[in-house]
């Protein structure tokens, strides 16, 4: 699992590549933790190469969403595949994020 952070002025893009399962979640969580401080900006979670998400992965997304709600930014989830969209729907997470194709 890889998480690449690309910062460009007001937008921070996080490319998530691989499987965000419980084993990978801790490392990704630590890598994305500093973004909570920058959550007044737009954070794009690029999921075009993400092929699985576990509950631990959902918690990472949710932590970013909470930080952005406090700091006045926004989190966009981009290019999720159908399986991940289904996980979002089944857990009630779908309407919590702005989802872009």
């Amino acid at each position: 699992m890889e998480a690449k952070i690309l910062e460009n002025n007001a937008v921070i893009t996080v490319e998530l590549i691989g499987r965000l399962d419980t084993a990978a979640a801790q490392e990704v969580s630590e890598k994305l933790l500093p973004l909570q401080e920058k959550a007044d900006r737009t954070i794009v979670l690029d999921c075009s190469q993400l092929n699985y998400i576990s509950s631990s992965g959902l918690r990472i997304f949710l932590a970013l969403r909470k930080a952005s709600a406090v700091k006045g930014g926004k989190v966009i989830v981009k290019s999720i595949n159908d399986d991940i969209r289904t996980v979002f729907m089944m857990t009630g997470f779908l309407n919590l994020f702005e989802i872009e194709a």
Binding site: S54, S55, L62, M90, T91, G92
Partner: peptide, 21 residues
């Protein structure tokens, strides 16, 4: 609906919006 969707998964987090959804 919820049973059918998540009953057989190991998902252990839900949002409070799941009920109304």
């Amino acid at each position: 609906i919820a049973c059918y969707q998540i009953g057989l998964t190991d998902l252990d987090i839900i949002a409070s919006s799941l009920g109304p959804q």
